[in-house]
Design a protein around this nucleic acid. Structure first.
Lengths: 215, 215
DNA sequence: ACAGTTGAACTGTACTACAGTTTGGGTCAT
DNA sequence: ATGACCCAAACTGTAGTACAGTTCAACTGT
């Protein structure tokens, strides 16, 4: 710990700040899926130039929350059955691969902590359940020891987090905890096959629940 | 097959075309790693406005070939030991996971075809070896049946392809073919453990070769 | 009901401008 | 020479204006 820890010059651009801010708003549901981000309106409201907004939105595109359509500008992504299934398939493959590995002690501890945090959220602050849930799975993927895959998974998570918000999916604490405990227990016992089976079941249930919400 | 298959209006923007063009040039080595993409120069040379170039470069950023540094603009990514190792680690995890699955007949055929194409390139057109090599591995990852992972892997491949270019790595046809044949044979025989071991060895050798080139 | 027309709103692109930052020399003292 | 310091040129980040082409929804006539 240096005496200068945390000291950092404000090295960021207006466009980057705008991108961050917009990302937050979109994640919070201020823009619904399929909504267009109208440049002039946003520029005027925030008191910046239109090209700056344009750049901010291009940065946003990096995170996958919006995509560009020619002559229509930036559009907030919308969940479809196919997209959600593709998302969960990727998750399932990664988590399955992760569980095939032998956890190091500190990794097992990280997963355990994530689980405890999830339980705590379920008991006290329901609004945090989804985030804790996703953090638990991120900890599982971390077993792969690959920063690139961690980042990729974080991207999937961000997208999924958004879908869950706009579909206003409410998780029922008891079920969620039971499912995750099963995974953790199997992992602790070194029972890979069971852990993998539990993940598969977990993903399967999730995607079915979401599909049902899409009508 | 509809009667209108392949018919598509030319729906693209100037910025997108510029991004594609720049990507090509960078991949071809016109800009070396660490080089800055100077906006005014490019804009003047191509006869477009600077903000259009800026947008093109932001699009380029999506593919990971360049990254932005504040007040320095877009910089072509440079290979480092850490980056290359992270890249290969991700590859190894994905391909290992893929080989753990049972290939469907058409998947096995696709992999076989990719291998044949690689052999053909090794015998006739050496310049295509790297591309065919990477295509072979892409076919393996396709075993995972996940479009999202396919796309992610394609991104890794693009990045790696660039590193190989700038490091002007030349592959020795015989070794390359032998290594890949070992993987394919194991896969055909349904011998997963051997296939996985071969992939690991293959990746290990590759990353060591590259590390050596980085000094 | 429906095809066609029209106009407002918006995107894609160009051009200009300027403050702040980086950079590659020079200069100067050591 | 070496290093500290300074300066001007080059460049980025951002603002602002302009306009052609596209989209979209409302209006019109049939």
């Amino acid at each position: 710990m240096s005496a200068l820890d945390g000291l950092e010059v404000r090295r960021t651009t207006t466009a980057q700040q705008l991108a961050d801010g917009l990302s937050e708003r979109i994640m919070a549901g201020a823009f619904g899926p399929g909504d267009r981000l109208r440049e002039s309106a946003i520029a005027a409201e925030l008191g910046v130039a239109r090209n700056t907004i344009r750049e901010a939105v291009r940065i946003l595109e990096l995170t996958g929350l919006v995509r560009y359509e020619v002559n229509r500008g930036a559009v907030v992504i919308a969940p479809t059955r196919e997209k959600i299934e593709a998302l969960y398939t990727a998750r399932e493959r990664l988590e399955t691969a992760a569980l095939a590995r032998t956890p190091r002690p500190e990794q097992l501890e990280a997963i355990t902590n994530a689980f405890d945090a999830l339980v705590e959220a379920a008991e006290n602050d329901g609004s945090q359940i989804v985030d804790r849930d996703l953090a638990f799975h991120q900890a599982i993927v971390a077993l792969l020891d690959s920063t690139r895959l961690d980042e990729f998974f974080a991207g999937l998570t961000k997208e999924l987090r958004f879908y869950l918000t706009v579909l206003s999916k409410q998780e029922t604490p008891d079920e969620v905890i039971a499912e995750h405990r099963a995974i953790l227990d199997a992992l602790r016992l070194g029972d890979r096959d069971t852990a993998v089976a539990e993940i598969r079941a977990h993903v399967d249930v999730s995607v079915k629940r979401l599909n049902a919400m899409l009508g």
